[in-house]
Design a protein around this nucleic acid. Structure first.
Lengths: 200, 200, 200, 200
DNA sequence: AATGAATGAGAGTTCATTCAT
DNA sequence: TATGAATGAACTCTCATTCAT
């Protein structure tokens, strides 16, 4: 339905502009140029349309993850590229990512949404780390699942501080340091195929 | 003033019970057993009393930081102890820490409060890291300020996932892995200065 | 809109009954048999609806003015008729005229409204007086604008004393004396132009 | 009592600054540097202290009146001097005069106060006019009481427009024109002792 | 008599939700 | 299905008044 799409689109605009708590339903219908009442034809309330916004923009909202890694790739470069891609994507959707934080605490449904995505990406990252560990590139003594979550948190949080709260880190330094930390934390060494495996 | 204290105390109870958005001023005055009007004798509004609550519990709310490190201390043990202390404190004030996240996004004042605390602790951590770098215990190529912020973020975020959002990580494993990651990330090695072995 | 009209009508009733300061918005919505919230669909507040009431009854509220005067008319009769018409209109809207006085002092907007009306009528009266001066019927040495304002004030104020404050002047005597004063003040003489005698 | 005097003094300041409706009792006690509760030791409420303010400043609040007239005085000059004195006094107490207008409508007690003063001055003016009529200086066909009230109203109202509402009449022209109108209205002629009595 | 924090009724205002058109 | 005025509960905030100290 055209009206529904207009409402979701408008909701995103309003939420990003005013925040979740301050957004009024009439702001959304005004922005969508629909009647107030039409809102309830498609949604049960604010939470409901916010969920719909999330559904719609799901793909734009990345999660810090290590790229698939071919056998010839330098793992450090892969991590750097992943961080770079994530931070740039975050910068583009900063307002929305902030919203997600705001709403996740008070709204059970959004919290679920967030956790599902987080878990899915976490699993993939954990798998990638385990693969590195199997190949002797990463410290095998580390809990891969926990590390995946923790390192993603680190990158995600720095993105939040930088692009939502406006902390003034320089983009390239940020990427560089985060990559260094991530790589060190897992005991990854560049060209590690031939190098010594990390000491536990 | 007795009334003021009662209001702050009551506000904390109500905020923790109902969340920030759902808390009504009358709930707070009811809980404090004061008249509605008394609220405005001491506070300008909801934001104001929330700030007062934060101020009051400030000391209970730690920030991930490396403890002061004596020359004889094992740096790994110091990091572990810091993480342990932080996570346990977070667990005790989990609901409030969650609120802080929720409110910080929409409320300028609370955001300031958070940033000030964050910056203060960040400086101390950066200083501690620089000291480790100077003593050759930590990788000197890493930006200390950024690393301090990033690693704190990591620990802080995991605490949030665990104690606010209820992700099910086991406490001891969490501490262990975070310590490992933190230590590795900075390139810290145990007893790396040839000093005294860590006291249990 | 029907609701808006009902609110304005109700507001007039409530204002006349309770005065401006004592009128509550819910009294108005109760009287209008509309929901409380509907008030804000049409008005910004009490001042706003009061202005709307004034706007609505503007035509009923005359201002002391000299009627258009044909060449054959007896100027004294014209002044008398004007005064009579004004005093009778004032009597019909006495409560509202009193309100206008009350509110005009504290409310900038209403003050503007009053001044605009006053200025418009003042101009017309001044013009009428100048015309009489030009025709040699009125004392040419008098400042027409000031005189217009002053004589209108005199009549308006006596109406206020009589119909708002309840001073006990007899209607016909009042008209007679005011007319005499007005006419004398301007140095107008009956049939001074040698024209047709006034029709009874 | 010293406190009482301080309150009345403070009330005048606050009323003149904020208007009657906007003045809060705590503003008055703050201004008087007394405790909130002390207000009720001396006054029953806002109306009560306003009455006290009026009582205190009674003498400063003139009413347009014709000065006592000696046999040798030029009546025109006496009227002019009266108007001048009144307008200048009004200018000095403009804010208070405006207050009187504001409150008189809604407050029965103040209305009484006002009416009593008005009546007293009205009587004196009427007496002065009757004396002029007796001496053949003023038109005897005019109702002296009504004329006294009407002409006083005229001067009082012009003072109000000029000094309270800020209408821009030039002081000297104002005095001149009002004097002219007043004198003409009553049929007074300068050096009228020797002149022709006014034709009815 | 003075104090001033505490009181709490009362008023204004907002906005999610409904429903007749 | 769309409309948008109407609804009214819910909530914030003010301030005259009280009363224990």
């Amino acid at each position: 339905m055209r009206t529904r799409a207009a409402l979701v689109q408008a909701a995103r605009v309003v939420f990003e502009r005013d925040g979740y708590a301050n957004a009024r339903l009439t702001d959304i219908t005004d922005e969508a140029q629909t009647a107030t009442g039409s809102f309830y034809t498609y949604f049960k309330g604010k939470q409901d349309i916010f969920a719909a916004v999330l559904e719609e923009v799901q793909d734009e909202m990345l999660y810090p993850q290590v790229r698939e890694m071919g056998h010839g790739d330098d793992p450090v470069e892969v991590v750097r590229a992943s961080n770079e891609a994530y931070l740039d994507a975050y910068a583009r959707n900063a307002r929305l990512m902030g919203l997600l934080e705001e709403v996740a605490i008070a709204d059970e449904g959004v919290q679920q949404f967030r956790r599902r995505r987080s878990a899915a990406f976490g699993k993939r990252n954990a798998k990638a780390i385990r693969e590195l560990q199997r190949r002797g590139i990463a410290d095998a003594s580390i809990d891969a699942a926990l590390a995946a979550s923790a390192l993603s948190s680190m990158v995600g949080r720095m993105a939040y501080y930088t692009y939502v709260l406006g902390e003034e880190w320089e983009r390239d330094e940020l990427i560089e340091t985060l990559t260094q930390l991530w790589v060190n934390a897992l005991g990854i060494t560049s060209r590690s195929d031939g190098g010594t495996p990390p000491s536990p």
